[in-house]
């Protein structure tokens, strides 16, 4: 077992330092790149926090829809192939709900401020 602080705590500390102490001193193109860099660290922190739970739930849904077991990557590959072949579509029970759930979980990590996401979150 690795010791504390956790990766999430360390990344948050770095992101906060860059945001609060460094960003105000930087201008021009580097300011833009720094903002994107801080966004990247924030994203990683969200992923570290949320990924385990959402991955487990996603794998469980996929196993049920596809009737097979496998890693999350393998299951998503099978789902993609079967949609491409027309074997599964939006009429397939549970598929639309699964895709919505999975996409919402991606947005929660990637872009929680995206307007479409916030609108759907309120539904």
């Amino acid at each position: 077992m690795q010791d504390e602080p956790s990766p999430e705590e360390l990344i948050k500390a770095v992101a906060d330092f860059l945001r609060n102490d460094i960003a105000p001193q930087i201008g021009g193109h580097h300011a833009f790149k720094l903002r994107v860099s801080i966004n990247a660290l924030d994203l990683v922190a969200r992923q570290l926090k949320l990924e385990q739970g959402s991955d487990a739930a996603e794998a469980a849904r996929l196993s049920q829809i596809l009737g097979t077991q496998g890693s999350l990557g393998e299951l998503n590959k099978v789902l993609a192939d079967r949609i491409a072949k027309g074997e599964l579509d939006l009429q397939t029970p549970g598929l639309a709900r699964h895709l919505w759930q999975t996409t919402m979980e991606k947005l929660a990590v990637d872009q929680p401020n995206y307007a479409s996401y916030k609108r759907e979150l309120a539904k």
């Binding site: 860099s37 990247a40 994203l43 990637d110 872009q111 479409s116 996401y117």
Partner: peptide
């Protein structure tokens, strides 16, 4: 880093 982060915008088009 900008290009890398654009990869994480494709989920916006999925929603």
């Amino acid at each position: 880093i900008e290009r890398a982060m654009i990869g994480r915008r494709s989920s916006e088009t999925e929603i």
